[in-house]
């Protein structure tokens, strides 16, 4: 029983960490090995760290409106959501690596990074919401708090991610170079 629990939790942790790490590595790939490793660490830290930072706020907010499940369940649901997000990122990794490897503009790195991470986070939020609030009444009551919490979390995540990309050398969107075309 203990071995099964350890195996399950281990697999969850591995998927939650591997997904962001692989995507981060893909995004840092055009800028050299050191940036690749740095970005892999940064994206993982942002995804996992932000989740750990924000989950207590969700628990407190939903408790205040009387819609919160137990703390254990909140933790388990958060882990499940992170696992789903990590799995999605791993599935999108081959496509992301290919698109970055065959493109020559920084805009692509930015756009792909935001798109892929946003897709993963939205999938995680969906699972978290459906796991935590299982009845229609609970969902209705918790929806405003959950929405505000989601917007703040996504906003923080986007801001931290943009700063990490700038540090890795991807510069800003405004500085991305796309050559104008020629007359034919």
């Amino acid at each position: 029983m203990t071995r099964t629990l350890v195996a399950t939790h281990g697999r969850t942790a591995l998927l939650a960490i591997a997904g962001p790490a692989v995507i981060g590595a893909a995004l840092g790939m055009p800028f050299g090995l050191s940036k690749l490793l740095a970005e892999a660490g940064m994206v993982t830290a942002i995804v996992v760290g932000l989740s750990v930072f924000m989950i207590p706020a969700l628990y407190i907010g939903t408790t205040l409106i009387g819609a919160a499940p137990s703390a254990d369940r909140v933790g388990a649901s958060a882990a499940s959501a992170l696992r789903a997000g990590g799995t999605l990122l791993l599935g999108l990794a081959p496509a992301t690596v290919f698109l970055i490897a065959t493109s020559q503009t920084r805009l692509v790195v930015w756009a792909l990074g935001f798109l892929v991470l946003a897709a993963s986070m939205l999938a995680s939020l969906r699972i978290l919401f459906s796991d935590l609030f299982t009845t229609s009444a609970a969902r209705l009551r918790a929806l405003p708090v959950f929405l505000v919490w989601s917007v703040v979390s996504l906003g923080l995540g986007a801001h931290l991610f943009a700063r990490s990309l700038e540090r890795s050398g991807a510069t800003t969107i405004a500085q991305s170079v796309i050559e104008p075309d020629d007359k034919e």
């Binding site: 493109s103 020559q104 503009t105 796309i178 050559e179 104008p180 020629d182 007359k183 034919e184």
Partner: peptide
């Protein structure tokens, strides 16, 4: 390997508006 499909769509849209930077490909 020159740019990407996305970059080509963007530059083609500029060409369609008459924005060029050289005479011919």
């Amino acid at each position: 390997l020159e740019g990407s499909f996305l970059a080509a769509v963007v530059t083609s849209s500029r060409s369609a508006r008459g924005i060029y930077w050289r005479e011919s490909a």
